[in-house]
Design a protein around this nucleic acid. Sequence first.
DNA 1: GCCAACGTTGGC
DNA 2: GCCAACGTTGGC
Length: 141
Amino acid sequence: MAYWLLKSEADTWSWDQQKQEGRKGAEWGGVRNFQARNNMRAMNKGDFGFFYHTGDEKRIVGIVKVVKEAHPESTDPTGQWECVDVTAVGDLPRPVTLAQIKATPALKSMVLVRNSRLSVQPVTESEWRKVCAMGGLADPP
DNA sequence: GCCAACGTTGGC
DNA sequence: GCCAACGTTGGC
């Protein structure tokens, strides 16, 4: 079991849109970066991830689960890029902001802090538990 | 709106 | 294969 963090601009693909896709989920498309693609290739079905809104919000708002492993992106005419399918698991009761994360010593080495530009990131198990606790999730996946 | 950090491109 | 120039991302 591995943990991840997926970033999106709310204008482009929001948490509400993700939730509307229901159990079947949707492609996590539009990734045009090799490191991010490699991270998606490393994902296994059943892995969990944080859903992070960039831009004005800059906070983790929900939990997603990988329902389909890396495959060519259906909307990419070149066929060069891949995506995974993810489904919304649930809201974080209390969204965790980037400012909170930066202010938390235990989260200092999160990729989100160290390399804010990477759009698909690995999250360690201890980071996962810490953020879930801060977000008010009593029983994290 | 600015700019730092990072990735990609293309000339050599 | 190096590196300067350029484009993009995302926080401030």
